[in-house]
Design a protein around this nucleic acid. Structure first.
Lengths: 200, 200
DNA sequence: TTCGTTATGGATTTTCCAGTACAGAAGGGT
DNA sequence: ACCCTTCTGTACTGGAAAATCCATAACGAA
């Protein structure tokens, strides 16, 4: 069984996610994807059946890696609950900074997918992934917030679930606001003010 | 100068904005636009030079009407500053409720445009309109927040500008979160928790 | 009524891009 | 060396959707 010089699937998914998160599904042509991944179209279609399929795989890849990164922060028992939230915000803003240095906003595959009802309806797996991811990320947040309420760094006056949903909403809002060319410092102040109910 | 049975430009722009706010630019075909506006393609192209041009006109229409609606709330001197903010949130959520009854999320042309860097770069007028609108809406919010701080309904501990940017960010975030099928009550709790720094 | 202007319907052209076909290259196994 | 499988480059196909054409209809003014 011959198997010539391979093809790093993960690298391609990474590159694809990098395009999709900025431009969204329809404004990313297969040409762009090939360019970004350093691969030819036939290779792409050889591995992934269609652009839709590639998108789904890229979304899965994106979602799991983002969540892993967030979990690493939110489950870090070295930090107080409050510091975990602050650190999460910092991570999001750092992504925006990095992207800004490259001349564009970071974007977000999840925000793009949520804002694209046609895409979600076309393949139920997308909706399912988004639902599942939202739930998972909310659970991570709830746990961290409970920890913060227990260690005294976060106010106990807010329900952990509401607080978690707020944090998600603020992060989505940041991804939009970031596109208006705000400075990272401003983004940071916005986010911390939004989480003020918890942080005091 | 003959002028046969006209063509209600405003009605067409309204219908177009109704499509664009949900589907965004590229997922809205001229076919859909004609359907929604009850007009044929040639009529559309007769009045607007291109889909791009129609989008720009629709965006302008959308932005000014949304801002007029927000101004009516935020400049209502009958209300305390705090009530103006609460009323603004309620208005946004009511839009989502109305759309949900019709089986979809409300969407938002501004959020879609912000998240579409390619579109913004293609025509500088779009970027200019977004910048201008953000500034205007922020100014409205700043004024209402100052009023609230003066009448004692809002905390004076937060800078009005930061608070205004936060309100904008929360509203954008709500537009995204709404697409996940949250109930209006949940959306409302999220928003009020986000504005807690001000409202106490 | 007649003319000039503008609106409309439908067919047509054009453009763009996802997806395919196919021939050949690049390995690995035996 | 030989075959077999998997990758790659290029050119092509097909379809969808933007944009145009044109002949006709609806009106207003003179």
């Amino acid at each position: 069984m011959g198997r010539p010089r391979g093809f790093d699937e993960t690298a391609v998914l990474d590159a694809a996610a990098g395009q999709f998160r900025v431009h969204g599904f329809e404004r990313t042509s297969t040409e762009q994807l090939c360019e970004a991944a350093g691969v030819r179209r036939s290779s792409l279609y050889n591995t992934f059946d269609s652009k839709d399929e590639l998108f789904i795989r890229a979304l899965e890849h994106y979602i799991t890696s983002v969540r892993a990164q967030q979990a690493a922060i939110l489950e870090d028992t070295e930090l107080s609950g409050a510091d975990r939230l602050r650190s999460l915000i910092d991570a999001v803003i750092r992504e925006e900074e990095d992207a800004a240095e490259r001349g564009h906003a970071a974007g977000c595959m999840v925000v793009h997918s949520f804002m694209n009802p046609d895409l979600r309806e076309r393949d139920e797996r997308i909706q399912a992934m988004l639902d599942h991811d939202l739930r998972q990320r909310t659970d991570l947040l709830v746990a961290a917030i409970r920890a913060g309420q227990a260690d005294g760094s976060l106010s106990g006056a807010v329900s952990p679930l509401d607080a978690a949903l707020l944090a998600n909403t603020v992060i989505s809002g940041l991804r939009v606001t970031a596109q208006s060319g705000c400075t990272p410092e401003t983004l940071r102040r916005i986010a911390l003010t939004g989480l003020h109910a918890l942080l005091h």
